[in-house]
Amino acid sequence: MGATAQREALERLGVLVGEWDVEAEFPGQDVTAGRSVFEWELGGQFLVQRSEAPDPAPASTAIVSVEPGTGAYTQHYFDSRGVARLYAMTFDGAVWRLLREEEDFSPLSFRQRFTGRLSADGDTIHGVWERSQDGSADWETDFGLTYRRRS
C-alpha cells in the first residue's frame, strides 16, 4: 500500500501544477494581486509553490511532501519575513486544506487553517484563511484567497 498511496497522492496534486494569478482579500482593504507557480521538483517527488505579492504580503515558498507509507501530505512553508511553518495538508482533488495547530519552527501564537475549493474546470480555487486565538474553538476569517489559472 505504501508506494501506491504515495503515487496516488502525488498524482492528485497534478491539477495544481502551473501558473496562477492570486487575489488576497483582507477585511477593510483593497484586493492585493500576486502570482503563484506550482511545479514538480526532484523527479516529481515534491510539489513546490512559489508566490510573489506586493507589500505588505510576503513572498513565499512552500514544499509539499507526501508520506511514503500513508500518502499523507505536509506543507513546509517559508517566507520573506523569515517565517518557517509546517502545515498538515489534505487534498482530494477538489478541496485543499491546510492546518497548523502545533508549534513548529515558530511559536504558535494562533492556530491557522486554509480551505480552498477547486472549480469544476480546475481553473479557479476559492479559499479562505482562518485563525483562532488562545486555543479557542472559534475561528475567524483572516483573509480570502482566490487563485485563477494563468497557464
Rank of each mutant, 00 (worst) to 15 (best):
M1A: 14
M1Y: 06
T4F: 11
A5V: 12
R7P: 00
A9K: 09
A9M: 11
A9C: 10
L10E: 04
E11Y: 00
E11S: 10
V15N: 01
V17C: 11
V22P: 04
E23Y: 04
A24D: 01
A24T: 03
P27C: 10
G28E: 15
G28C: 07
Q29M: 14
Q29S: 14
V31T: 15
G34W: 02
R35D: 01
S36M: 11
V37E: 14
V37Q: 11
E39D: 13
W40R: 10
E41W: 09
L42S: 12
G43R: 08
G44E: 08
F46S: 01
R50P: 00
S51R: 08
A53L: 09
P54N: 04
A59C: 05
A59T: 12
A59G: 11
S60M: 08
T61P: 00
I63A: 04
V66G: 14
V66F: 13
E67Q: 13
T70A: 04
G71T: 05
G71Y: 11
A72Q: 12
T74N: 07
V83G: 00
V83R: 12
R85T: 05
R85Q: 14
L86C: 02
L86N: 11
Y87K: 05
T90D: 15
D92Y: 12
A94T: 14
W96H: 13
R100K: 10
E103C: 06
E103G: 07
L108F: 09
L108V: 02
L108M: 13
F110P: 00
R111M: 04
Q112E: 14
R113N: 07
R113F: 04
F114G: 06
T115S: 12
R117Q: 06
S119G: 06
D121K: 10
H126P: 00
V128Y: 00
Q133R: 09
Q133S: 07
D134L: 01
G135H: 12
G135Q: 08
A137D: 15
E140N: 10
F143L: 12
L145F: 01
R149K: 15
R150G: 02
